[in-house]
Each structure stands twice: as structure tokens, then as C-alpha cells.
């Protein structure tokens, strides 16, 4: 039990510390693909360090909600890092929240962020909040539907059980999962403010979604918000790996399987990050009113995946 708790803590700390690196890796890959040299993979750490050392500037009208939100959002993402089986499945905290609760925890972070953006009452802040919620109200159901296909396959909404079933049961091809995987990818892009929904590198306020939400933040608050965003991206990546490429995640807590998991994780993340960068390089940003179509597509694909599973594999 103690070992399990140690692994649980270790996994969370690892994810929290690795999150900026993953974001840096994606950015670096993007730079390479665009024939730029790029700032290096460690740039996000430097940015965080710089931000933490600055004095916070708050607008006169900022309320308690504005100041509490960075911590709450960061807390949500750290909690997600505890729950998602990154290194090992069946860890002590995993029964506390299943995939539906995980979606709920992400929603909590998002609602607070949107409210904080409206708190000051700037034009860009409220616009960003509206757009963020617009993306979310379509992406959230799509994400739930994505989860439902593996949940039906494994007869469980617990991520640990899903990983168990998909990774360690005799291999079966689940056509429904293919649809779900594409839908998941689309949701990942939308929810993490990546192209084609949002441009993480934009400097034009009118096209911003995520950046508009954090415009008023500075210093440590902004650092926490950025770190939380990095964590969210990594959480989605590990979630996707757990659902669609679960091989390598330790099922029992013993030396060899943990070393294997530790070895697999960087490789899988590196490939995932590079693929993400490639996808982003190949796509152009959509107009904001095309975004609902994109997300509706994701939603439909996820539902199709579910239907495919029910049709082809029937009542289990």
C-alpha cells in the first residue's frame, strides 16, 4: 500500500514537472517543421521562472474570484494528474474519480477560468469567456461520448479498468475505438486551444480564445494559469494514450513493469507531441463560427463510434 501511495505521488509530481517540457517539445517540433530554430524545449520553464519572480499587477476591480481562479484551475489539473493512469493503473486515488468525474473536474477549472475572465469587465475578457464556453459546451459532450465507447467495451467508467481491459485482455479490434480516437483528437485540439480552433501563438486579440481569457493575469497568477494549461495538454495526451495506446502502463506495482512504464512514457509522449505539432502545422485556423462545425463533427464521430460498437459488438 505504501508503495502504491508513493507511486501515486510520484506519478503526480512527475506529470506536474514534465508538463512544461511536453509543451516545450510540441513548440520545438512546430518550430522545426516551420524551418525555424525555436527557443528550445526548456523555454516554458524559463517563462514560468520569470513570471513567478515578478510582482503581480491586479486590476482595481479584481474580486476574490479573480485571485482564487489560478489556484483552483491549477488544483483541478493536478488532480487530473493524480487520476489519469500515466505510469500505473489501479493506484489508490483512481477509484475516487472515473472518466465522468474527470470531465467534471476539467469543467470546474474551465468554469472558473471563464468567470475570472469576466470579472474585470474588459471587452476581450468577456469575449474570450463566451468563446471558451462556446467551444466547451460542444467539446465536453463530445469528450464524454468519446469515453463512452471504451467504457462500454470494458463495462466500466474507471480509467484503471479501461486500461486493464484494453491493454491486458486478449487483443480484439474494436472499430468503434477508431471513431472515438479521431473524435478525441479533435476535442484535444479544441480544448487545449490549439490549431485549428485557436492559435496558441497568436498576438491578434480578436482571434484569441484562450489568450483572451488570461489577458488580465500577470506574474504568479499567469504562471499558474500557463502551467495549468500545460498540465491540461499533458493530461489530455496521457488520457489519449491510456485509452488508445495503453500498452506499457504498469498493471502491477513492481520494479520491472514500472521501469517499463517509465521507459515507454517518454517515447509515447514524444511521438504524440510530434504528431500534434505536425497536425497543427498542416492546418489553418478556422473562423470562430466554423468552430462549432468542427466540434459538432467531433461529437458526431464520437456518437458514431458508440453506435458502431453497439451495432458490431452488441450486448456484452
Amino acid at each position: 500500500m505504501n508503495a502504491a501511495i508513493a507511486i501515486q505521488l510520484g506519478q503526480a509530481v512527475l506529470v506536474v514537472l514534465l508538463a512544461p517540457l511536453f509543451a516545450g517539445w510540441v513548440n520545438q517540433c512546430r518550430a522545426w517543421l516551420q524551418n525555424r530554430r525555436g527557443p528550445g524545449m526548456l523555454q516554458p520553464y524559463r517563462v514560468l521562472r520569470k513570471l513567478f519572480h515578478k510582482d503581480a499587477v491586479l486590476a482595481h476591480r479584481a474580486s476574490f474570484l479573480f485571485r482564487a481562479t489560478p489556484y483552483i484551475r491549477f488544483g483541478c489539473m493536478v488532480l487530473a494528474a493524480y487520476i489519469i493512469p500515466t505510469l500505473a493503473s489501479g493506484l489508490p486515488i483512481s477509484p475516487a474519480a472515473d472518466v465522468i468525474a474527470l470531465v467534471g473536474i476539467f469543467a470546474l477549472g474551465r468554469v472558473f477560468m471563464a468567470l475570472a475572465a469576466m470579472d474585470i469587465g474588459t471587452a476581450f475578457g468577456t469575449m474570450g469567456a463566451r468563446r471558451e464556453m462556446l467551444v466547451a459546451f460542444l467539446a465536453e459532450p463530445a469528450l464524454l461520448m468519446v469515453f463512452f465507447t471504451p467504457a462500454l467495451i470494458s463495462q466500466s467508467t474507471s480509467l484503471s479498468t479501461i486500461v486493464h481491459t484494453l491493454a491486458y485482455q486478449p487483443f480484439v479490434i474494436h472499430p468503434g475505438l477508431a471513431f472515438a480516437a479521431i473524435a478525441f483528437l479533435m476535442v484535444l485540439l479544441a480544448e487545449n486551444a490549439r490549431l485549428p480552433i485557436d492559435n496558441p501563438a497568436t498576438h491578434l486579440e480578436l482571434t484569441m480564445i484562450h489568450e483572451a481569457l488570461v489577458l488580465e493575469y500577470s506574474a504568479r497568477h499567469l504562471a499558474l494559469m500557463d502551467w495549468a494549461s500545460n498540465l491540461k495538454l499533458l493530461a489530455y495526451a496521457t488520457m489519449g494514450l491510456a485509452l488508445f495506446a495503453p500498452w506499457g502502463i504498469a498493471r502491477t506495482i513492481d520494479g520491472p513493469s514500472l521501469w517499463l512504464a517509465l521507459a515507454c512514457l517518454p517515447v509515447k509522449l514524444a511521438v504524440a507531441g510530434a504528431a500534434l505539432a505536425l497536425l497543427e502545422t498542416l492546418s489553418a485556423k478556422l473562423r470562430i463560427f466554423r468552430a462549432p462545425e468542427f466540434l459538432a463533427m467531433a461529437f458526431l464521430l464520437a456518437v458514431l463510434g458508440l453506435l458502431t460498437h453497439v451495432l458490431l459488438e452488441g450486448a456484452a
Binding site: 510582482d55 491586479l58 482595481h60 474588459t122 476581450f124 489577458l215 488580465e216
Partner: peptide, 8 residues
């Protein structure tokens, strides 16, 4: 914390 006008 320093208070100021919103950045906007």
C-alpha cells in the same frame, strides 16, 4: 500585489 487599471 500592485493594483492598477485593467490592461485590456
Amino acid at each position: 500585489v500592485r493594483r492598477s487599471d485593467p490592461w485590456d
